[in-house]
């Protein structure tokens, strides 16, 4: 598996103190599919050893893939506050 964090070091972020996506982990614990783990292009979702996931919002590219593949309704998904989050330069 490619370690995407090395690539994201080149991206420009302004990280908010508050996460723009909130995960209701109670819903993830019983999720067998955990599609977010591989679907997120920025590897923001990591598996917990037993079950469930851990989410880190800092490297989020704001694409929304996690939101549309999650069928547990575990995500309260919003865009970051104005001016926060990723700023593309060559996209």
């Amino acid at each position: 598996m490619v370690d995407i964090s090395m690539r994201l070091k080149f991206s420009r972020y302004r990280v908010d103190r508050e996460p723009h996506i909130r995960v209701n982990y109670a819903n993830c614990r019983t999720c067998k599919q955990r599609a977010c783990l591989t679907a997120c292009p920025a590897q923001c979702y990591l598996p917990r050893q037993e079950d469930g996931v851990v989410f880190n919002y800092e490297a989020c590219l704001e694409c929304g893939t996690c939101y549309i593949v999650c069928d547990r309704g575990a995500l309260a998904w919003e865009y970051p506050k104005g001016g926060y989050g990723v700023s593309f330069r060559f996209a």
């Binding site: 080149f10 590219l61 694409c63 593309f88 060559f90 996209a91």
Partner: peptide
Amino acid sequence: ALEKFKRHPVIAPLLEGGRFLEYSAHL
């Protein structure tokens, strides 16, 4: 999948000596 595409024998020579600038994603 992107990594595999970049390593495809038809694509890889086109990228030789390249310097990575940015990775981005969108729906």
